[in-house]
Every structure is written in C-alpha cells, then in structure tokens.
C-alpha cells in the first residue's frame, strides 16, 4: 500500500497552481486535504505523475459574506466550516452536515473544496451544494468561470471541471425568512460514508405553506441527487398537511442508479433513503414553524 512515484508541486498562488495544471495536463491531480486521494494513491487505484498540492495557497482559505451568498474558500477545512459562527447563522444546512463528514481527524485535514471536487455521491457537502443551488468558482490559466451546482456533478467522482481547472471557492445562497434545515443519514458506523442520507431545507410563508424546499439526497445515485419532482409537489402545500413518510417515498421514487453492495441492496437503500427524508422533513419543518 505505497503509492506509485509522483512529482510533488506546492504552489502558493492560484495563478501558479493554474499554470501548473495547464502545463502538466492529464497526468496532474490537485491534492487538497488528501483524505480520499491519498488512500486511492496508496492502494494504486489512482496513479498520477504529478500532484499539485493547493494547501499553501492563502487565497483559497476563508469564509465571507458576498451579497446574498456565503462564499467559502475551497481550501477551508471541514473543521473550520464546522466551527464557523458565520456558517452556522447564514448556511445552517452546511453547519448541520459537517459533523457527518468522517471523523474530526478527517475534518481537520479535509477541505470543503476537496470534498465537492472529489464528488463522491455519498459525501455530504456535494448534496448540500446541490440542494442550496450553490455556485462553484472555477479558475484556470484560461480564465475564471462559475458553474451552477446542478451542472457541476456529472458522474461518479466526476465533475464538469476541465483537468486544468481548479475549484477556488463555493458560494452558498443564504435562505432568509421562516426556514428550517436538517441533515439525516444512515451509515454502518459513525463517520462512515452514508448508505443513504438527505439534506433538507424548507422555507414557509406566513400561513405555514411551503414557499420552497430543497432535498439533496446523499448516496442514492452515481451523483448527489435532487428530488425536484417532490419539491415541486410540495410547493404551496400547507406544511401541517404534508405526510413526511409520503415525502420520503416520493423523494426516492424516481431514482435510477441507487448503489447496491455488501452493505445494502438498492432496494434497502431506497427504503433507508425514504426513512431519512421523512425524519429530516419532520425536523426541518418543525424548525421552520417554531424556529
């Protein structure tokens, strides 16, 4: 379990990192916290000639309010996200998802950008980004662009970023008004990747009707999934008349690529997903109603 040889690069600016990625081409991989990449290298499931370590780039760190969104630098550790008062008050869903990200030792090293760019469908941050319609700031030597979360995750461990692009930061829209947020997931052990989970956001109007809701499903497909049909059905419904179990069943109904392995069949995961959605819906709707 030793990685194949690679050349190690440690740029200190985004521009230098982008330059390296442009020069090195397909043989290069961005190394952030290394919590997924290093084990994959050690098992030789992945082999790269060059690693571009972005851990020394100060511009990638930080949490700041930018208009109606909260910008989180891609290099910000998950532990820093979890400890941030700003995150807790502006994007509670992100704060609530953080304790589910591995163990604290992992969160001390792992980064928000690393998790989102790695795009594991069973990871929490990609589902939160998708649920909240976050936007990704992506930089290359060719320039910068912004990718909407719904266009970002395009397959298992795969994103719409080009190989010369670096994820610089993620902007999470701030939900105001009568909102509630909840994350529920089921893992074999505390800290394991979820067999099924969900990040739920709800906003109610003054009459307890659902103004909008967002359901980001974790571990239920080859990418994080958004239960858009369910969300559309819920819009305008009086929240007290919504059957949480029915929300759960509806949210998992259309899923086509639910994983299946030793730890759970697709059918089991679907039922788990429904149960997690129901639990999260109850918690989030109660929070939205009662604060």
């Amino acid at each position: 379990m030793k990685p194949a040889p690679f050349e190690y690069h440690a740029p200190t600016t985004i521009a230098d990192a982008a330059g390296l990625l442009a020069d090195l081409g397909d043989g290069a991989k961005v190394l952030a916290g290394g919590q997924s990449l290093i084990p994959m290298l050690a098992l030789r499931l992945a082999v790269f000639d060059h690693l571009v370590d972005v851990g020394r780039i100060a511009e990638l760190h930080g949490i700041e309010r930018r208009g109606d969104a909260l910008w989180v630098g891609a290099g910000t550790t998950e532990a820093a996200v979890g400890a941030s008062v700003e995150v807790a008050s502006s994007v509670p869903l992100l704060a609530k998802a953080t304790p589910f990200v591995g163990h604290f030792q992992i969160r001390n090293r792992g980064t928000l950008g690393g998790s989102i760019a790695h795009a594991d469908p069973a990871a929490e941050y990609p589902a939160v980004a998708l649920a909240l319609d976050a936007s990704m700031d992506v930089v290359s030597s060719r320039g910068s662009r912004t990718i909407a979360a719904r266009d970002f995750f395009d397959g298992l461990w795969s994103t719409s970023m080009e190989t010369d692009e670096l994820l610089a930061g993620v902007s999470f829209p701030i939900w105001g008004g009568r909102c509630g947020f909840a994350v529920e997931e089921f893992a074999r052990r505390y800290g394991d990747f979820a067999l099924a989970g969900v990040a739920v956001a709800i906003e109610l109007d003054g009459d307890d009707r659902v103004r909008r809701s967002a359901l980001g499903l974790i571990g239920m497909g080859s990418t994080p999934e958004r239960a858009v049909t369910t969300e559309a059905q819920l819009a305008g419904q009086p929240v007290t008349e919504v059957d949480a179990e029915e929300v759960g069943r509806s949210a998992v109904a259309g899923l086509e690529a639910v994983p299946s392995d030793l730890h759970g069949s697709a059918d089991y995961r679907r039922q788990l997903g429904a149960a997690m959605v129901a639990r999260a819906w109850r918690t989030a709707s109660a929070e939205a109603r009662h604060g």
Binding site: R189, Y190, G191, D192, L262
Partner: peptide, 28 residues
Amino acid sequence: LYEHLAYDEDGNPITTTFMDYLLPTATE
C-alpha cells in the same frame, strides 16, 4: 453486527480495506 470477510460468487475477496471490512469502534 459489522465484520464480514466476504467473497463474491466468483471467489474474489470484496472486503479488502477498512472501507468495507468494518470493525466496531468506540462509538459502537
């Protein structure tokens, strides 16, 4: 509750790392 040294039906081991071979930890 957790551990299973599993092979698929063709004889391939499928629990070859601690991602899949689950040991109980202090939380369990």
